[in-house]
Simulated assay, not measured.
Amino acid sequence: MTLSLQDIAWHRSVGQLIEALDKPNFWTLLVRLLGQYVTFDSWVVLLFSSELRPQVFAECPGVGGGPDPLFQDYLNGLYLLDPFYIASREQAQTGFFHLAEVAPEYFEQTEYYQRYFRLNVVADEIQLNCQLDADRTLCLSLGSTQRFTTEQIALLSLIQPWVIALLRQRMPFEELAPTQQPQPAAHWRTQLEASVSQLKGAQLTVRELDVGRLMLSGCSSKEIARKLDISVETVKVHKKHMYSKLGIKSQSELFSIFLQAQGA
């Protein structure tokens, strides 16, 4: 078997990345390498866990080089509605994931999609996940203003073993010298329930809070019923009671309450 010049260039670049595992510019070098094979417009490296808010290890510069206010909203609480975050918590695993695989049925109709995703990520997203232990997932996310093509997705699937191996080998250096300590994440139910009680004087049940969050993430009544192991009719009853207690009539109003609860 003969190697092409492209094969040789790829292996050479991977070798250089291995040499740079302990260097501050590792993530930039990795993203530049991926950019030679797949077109994307934004990227971020995150650590997901259930007990902490997402920790950012590296990200593409915002407009003007400063922090992106929309992304700060994400870190303050919108991540709880992120399809990739939800998928990583429901079934933690290593691999390559495309938005179309993890997004709920009505994701593009949600307030989260309209107010955050399409403005910050714009059109499409893929994520390479390295499962570090039972709770922590190291993620490299790539966002694009265009839909990723079948060829791009196939190529990323092909090279994912190299990329994920590099993510795993890089992690000890991040743990030794984190840029900042991640903030503990109050359980979303507790946080939302306290805020709702303060804002509306309403006491929601655990099940109503579960239904509300899944609604906001874009899940249909059937998806919510399957995730919570209840009937579709029970989902509708919980939704009706929740709306009545909060004095609202739409998901838009529910999303506004959610934002206030997260301080976003």
Rank of each mutant, 00 (worst) to 15 (best):
T2H: 06
L3P: 05
H11L: 15
R12K: 13
R12D: 06
V14S: 00
L17H: 12
E19H: 07
P24G: 09
L29I: 15
L33P: 04
L34M: 14
L34F: 13
L34N: 04
L34W: 08
G35F: 04
Y37V: 10
Y37F: 05
V38N: 02
T39N: 12
W43G: 03
W43Q: 11
V44Y: 07
S49H: 03
L52A: 02
R53M: 08
Q55W: 14
E59S: 13
P61Q: 09
V63L: 15
G65C: 10
G66Y: 10
P67M: 12
F71G: 00
Q72H: 09
G77R: 02
L80A: 08
D82N: 03
Y85V: 00
Q91I: 10
Q91C: 12
A92E: 10
Q93C: 03
F107E: 01
Q109M: 08
R115E: 14
R115M: 07
R118A: 06
R118S: 14
V122M: 01
E125M: 13
I126N: 00
I126K: 00
Q127P: 01
N129S: 07
Q131F: 05
T137I: 11
C139M: 06
L142H: 01
G143M: 13
T150H: 09
E151S: 14
L156H: 00
Q160R: 10
P161Q: 05
V163P: 01
A165Y: 06
L167A: 04
Q169I: 04
Q169A: 12
R170M: 08
M171R: 15
E175G: 10
A177V: 15
A177K: 14
Q180T: 00
Q181A: 14
P182N: 04
A186D: 00
A186R: 09
W188M: 08
T190C: 13
A194P: 03
S195V: 13
V196S: 12
L199V: 11
K200V: 02
G201F: 06
T205S: 11
V206F: 15
V206G: 12
L209S: 08
L209D: 04
L209M: 13
V211F: 11
V211M: 14
G212D: 02
M215W: 07
L216Q: 02
C219T: 03
C219H: 05
S221F: 15
I224D: 00
A225R: 01
K227F: 05
S231M: 02
K240Y: 05
K240F: 11
K240S: 07
M242A: 11
L246Q: 03
G247W: 02
G247P: 01
I248L: 04
S252T: 11
S252L: 11
I257A: 06
F258H: 03
F258Y: 14
Q262S: 07
Q262V: 07
G263K: 07
